[in-house]
Nucleic acid binder design. Structure first.
Length: 423
RNA sequence: GGAGGGUUGGCCGAGUGGUUGAUGGCGGCAGUCUUGAAAACUGUUGACCUUAACGGGUUCGGGGGUUCGAAUCCCUCACCCUCCGCCA
């Protein structure tokens, strides 16, 4: 969430920036500032009362020690009224703080200056195109037909076992998944990211820390009995490693990578968007997460983009990089670059990576701080990116590399797959 | 799942109702000594809220209660440990 300081220092600025996200923050910001000053006044008042109560209690202690019981009893009477008043004040203060928090959580992150206004996906800016042109053979098939033809991904079997969106990978299909995961992890660790294997279920505090809760509750699978959530992305458990942490000067930056299956309810999706591997309820993804000092976070973002681009290039796939416009930015992001692969058989771009800087939006919720040169604690910046999400990489790879004699595995993956084609 | 024992500052560890935000040790930082380092000695060293500042307040796993006063008593939740049961 946004920091109160930001809102106090420059409320108009925040409202203006949020307009770029097509978010009208005017009334919420006004309410927050009102609640903030109310809360602060109540606190000052209540602090004074508490200070007096403490003084009297200390006096009573001293009197009791000296055996002056009558005087102590007289002092006790004094506190009765103070107690009642401060009790009431605390209640009001608590209510104001709660209300303030509930309003603050409604505000999305402000976009950084590079983000342009726009309504939605159609206004995103293509910042780069790369990779070879795709030339398909006659009668090229979409990946769901290829999957059936070579018996490598079984969507119907997944429906039987669980439901739609839970495919079963078989044979070379399963091996390809494992190869891609290992390939991506190896590339990431070679680039200095430390590998972690986190839990794939998280508690509510973690969901709140990265911003999935409360507003995106419906996107996560929830285990009622234990109040755990299936992770929608490794970002959640990995970033929460740093919840309530103060990093010392030597511990920042942090660069982590993790593979996890990801679980998304995707309520409301339908049609060609969800066909085959295009949108699943369970899928595999390798993620990179960074914790940076504010002054370094944009350089880190550029590094992450270059790194993800290097992965796509190694796979030899046609891609483009988009800078999302304000209207398409996620709630928590200050800036996001999307990577998309060209699916020639489907004649559409498939999103395979999203690289974002959250600045202090997550760290404020997480209480993730670091100690600066002066020994003061400051909120750190968090960033993350997919590197990469498997299903659509697999979709594009199957479709774009299909030939009469089977699907050609990119050279770089062969040590991982142990085969050079699927046929 | 059953029974019992725990949770104190960066770490270890005292503390069972009255200046205890908390003895002591380790670690960190600064200084003395030393050519330098080590050792020794001295000092210093949590976080958060509020304030222009002085100051004030909160914080001994979380929440609630008793009391003039709670790290200390009571209730409750979470987590950890031990034993039993179950088990990849």
């Amino acid at each position: 969430m946004l920091t109160l300081k930001m809102l106090r220092d420059d409320p108009e600025g925040v409202v203006g920036k949020l307009k770029i996200k097509n978010f009208d923050a005017e009334s919420i910001v006004g309410k927050i500032l009102e609640l903030d000053s109310l809360r602060r006044n109540l606190q000052t008042e209540s602090d004074e009362l508490l200070a007096r109560q403490k003084q009297i209690a200390a006096k009573i202690g001293a009197l009791m020690k000296e055996g002056r019981k009558d005087e102590a009893d007289a002092a006790k009477a004094e506190t009765a009224e103070l107690k009642a008043r401060s009790g009431e004040l605390l209640e009001r203060m608590d209510a104001a703080a709660k209300e303030l928090e509930s309003q603050l959580v409604l505000l999305p992150n402000t976009p950084c200056p590079l983000v342009k206004p726009g309504k939605g996906a159609e206004d995103n800016e293509v910042v780069k195109m790369g990779g070879p042109e795709v030339r398909l053979p006659e009668n090229a098939l979409p990946h769901w037909d290829l999957a059936r033809k070579y018996d490598i991904i079984d969507f119907d079997l997944g429906v039987k076992i669980t439901g739609a969106g839970f495919p079963v990978y078989k044979g070379k299909g399963a091996k390809l998944q494992r190869a891609l995961i290992n390939f991506f992890l190896d590339c990431n660790t070679a680039a200095g990211y430390r590998e972690v294997e986190p839990p794939v279920m998280v508690n509510a505090a973690s969901g709140f820390g990265t911003g999935q809760l409360p507003d995106k509750e419906g996107q996560m699978y929830h285990a009622n009995l234990d109040d755990f959530y299936m992770v929608p992305t490794a970002e959640v458990p990995v970033t929460n490693i740093f919840r309530d942490v103060i990093l010392s000067a030597g511990e920042i930056p942090q660069k982590l990578t993790a593979y996890t299956p990801c679980f998304r309810r995707e309520a409301g999706s339908y049609g060609k968007d969800v066909r085959g591997l295009n949108r699943l309820h369970q899928f595999d993804k390798v993620e990179i997460v960074r914790v940076e000092k504010p002054e370094n976070s944009y350089a880190a973002l550029d590094e992450m983009i270059a790194h993800v681009e290097s992965l796509v290039n190694k796979l030899g796939l046609r891609y483009r990089i988009l800078r999302l416009c304000g209207g398409d930015l996620s709630f928590t992001s200050a800036i996001t670059y999307d990577f998309e692969l060209w699916s020639a058989a489907q004649q559409r771009w498939l999103e395979i990576s999203s690289v974002s800087n959250f600045e202090t939006y997550q760290s404020n919720r997480l209480h993730l701080r670091y100690r600066d040169e002066n020994g003061r604690t400051q909120l750190a910046h968090t960033l993350n990116g997919s590197s990469l999400a498997l299903p659509r990489v697999v979709a594009a790879l199957l479709e774009d590399n299909q030939t009469e004699s089977g699907i050609i595995i990119p050279e770089i993956l062969r040590p991982y797959t142990g085969f050079d084609r699927i046929d």
